[in-house]
Design a protein around this nucleic acid. Structure first.
Length: 457
RNA sequence: GGCCCCUUCGUCUAGCGGUUAGGACACCGCCCUUUCACGGCGGCGACACGGGUUCGAGUCCCGUAGGGGUCACCA
């Protein structure tokens, strides 16, 4: 059975790069009728936040990605890791390293500047006996050789073993490190396919060494290229709206966000729109691209607009109430209103603003519009119109359309622009907006008259 | 700097030795329309560069350039 996972560290919210990785793993597991599991990588107790874990799970809930089995917390598994560290120690596959943190700092700085290392990091590799000072435990990698990874995305990638492959597997506090526990957990959780960002590519070789040391089978790896920011760099928390839950606040639909993300680095011919069912059916990690992609907000907006237009009005009304405090669920012209507003909103937030603008009487009138359309006889015409409709039954947009176009305008010898733009100004303060007949129908005759009279006074 | 990865329109991408290099977003124009949108039609616009291999290269190989990732007692 195919088992995949998403394994975030709870240092903050879930960001969209992580969500895409999770989505790929989720889709592949569902495609294969396998399992998709969640693991919280909280071995670094200093940085671990309970709140962050909650936020991550909340984001999963919002987008509707459900996971299988219990969530695994690494912080609850220290005993397990300890056992494996001791095993390696006993088998001579790991060793105590007494290098001080100052020495290591010096080493690190030199290496990152591109200088020759000041000493051999493997100094204590063959050291016999014990020293009475703090130590970390390092993995004893082979001294030379080549590792070959058959990556599902990148193809064959090779790595020459180097001194730094003697990496720390347990801190002086005894807490094991990432590259070690990942292997233990992935193995014990039965992972068969690991889809993750290609920033992990170098980690993978360290992890392969651990798999080898325990004699475990390697899962299939897929290293997916990063999502880049505008500057072409790895997306980071400084890059604006990367928190998944921000999208909810901004009025995005989760299906739009997922559809957007699945097309970053993956495609199926020319198809742009994918329902969750289609994604599950069509997704295959072998089809993931090799090149990084850039985040394209305009396309997300387009997709969101598409999904808004295809969402039932009752559902939209629900979301508008929950997320934006716009309560129109019991409005008698709900369908007309939302049909009109949907076409001109890319987000729920925009919908909320437009609806609010329609339903709230104008507090001011656009100066330019007034100057252009309100002539000396306009007020007279509007007053006549009020009289004209006073005793009529007007409900649907077609009623309003007819009373204007078939009756009032021809009978008064007017042109449409003598009355229609002014009516808009009376209703909403401006000449732009939804279809006028629809607008009048939504507001209803009493409100229409009220707003005209307000303007006249 | 070492190691590794990457390179088709501005952006997301199709392409898997022979294509007028296709689609989508954005942008521009036209049509529809009593406004604004929606929608329809059309336009602009790309194989980083240089060598090979081949009858033939966006597709294969090698360089160059550019970009990115990574080198922690973080994950």
């Amino acid at each position: 059975m195919t088992i995949t996972r998403f394994a975030p560290s709870p240092t903050g919210y879930l960001h969209i790069g992580g969500l895409r990785t999770a989505l790929f793993n989720y889709l592949w597991a569902r495609n294969q009728n396998g399992k998709f599991r969640l693991r919280i990588e909280d071995t670094d107790l200093k940085r671990n936040k309970e709140e962050a874990t909650k936020a991550i799970l909340e984001a999963f809930e919002w987008v509707g990605m459900n996971w299988d089995d219990e969530v695994v917390y690494q912080s609850e598994r220290f005993d397990v890791y300890k056992k494996y560290v001791e095993q390696l120690l006993k088998e001579g596959k790991a060793y105590k390293c007494y290098l001080t943190s100052d020495e290591l700092k010096e080493y690190r700085e030199a290496v990152q500047k591109g200088l020759e290392p000041p000493f051999d990091i493997r100094k204590y590799r063959d050291f016999e006996g014990e020293l009475d000072k703090d130590y970390v435990i390092r993995f004893k990698a082979p001294l030379e050789g080549e590792l070959v990874l058959e990556d599902g995305v990148k193809g064959r990638v090779t790595h020459q073993i180097q001194p730094s492959d003697d990496f720390v597997i347990a801190r002086s506090s005894g807490v094991p490190t990432y590259n070690f526990v990942v292997v233990i957990d992935d193995h014990e959780m039965g992972m068969t396919d690991i889809i993750r960002g290609d920033d992990h590519l170098t980690n993978t070789f360290k992890q392969m060494l651990i798999y080898n040391a325990f004699g475990w089978d390697l899962p299939k790896f897929y290293h997916v290229p990063m999502i880049h920011n505008e500057k072409g760099q790895k997306l980071s928390k400084r890059d604006g709206a990367v928190n998944v839950m921000e999208y909810k606040k901004d009025g995005f639909l989760p299906e739009a966000l997922l559809n957007f993300l699945v097309r970053l680095g993956w495609s199926y011919g020319d198809q742009e729109i994918f329902s969750m069912e289609e994604m599950i059916k069509l997704f295959n990690p072998n089809d993931i691209n090799t090149a990084p992609s850039k985040y394209n907000y305009e396309k997300l907006l387009w997709l969101n607009h598409h999904y808004i237009k295809n969402t039932p009005n009752q559902k939209l009304a629900e979301l508008l109430k929950e997320d934006f405090g716009i309560d129109i669920q019991n409005h008698d012209k709900l369908e007309i209103l939302l049909d009109e507003v949907k076409d001109r909103s890319q987000t729920l937030k925009e919908m909320a603003e437009i609806i609010d603008n329609i339903l709230t009487p104008p507090s001011e009138y656009n100066e330019k519009a007034v100057k252009k359309f309100i002539k000396e006889n306009t007020k007279e015409i509007l007053a006549k119109f009020v009289e004209f409709i006073k005793d009529k039954e007007l409900h649907l947009p077609t009623d309003w359309h007819d009373v204007l176009m078939e009756e009032f305008i021809p009978q008064q010898g007017l042109k449409p622009k003598d009355i229609m733009p002014p009516l808009r100004i009376c209703m909403n303060g401006d000449t732009k907006g939804i279809d006028l007949s629809a607008l009048l129908a939504i507001l209803g005759k009493d409100e229409v008259i009220k707003r005209i009279q307000k303007f006249l006074s």
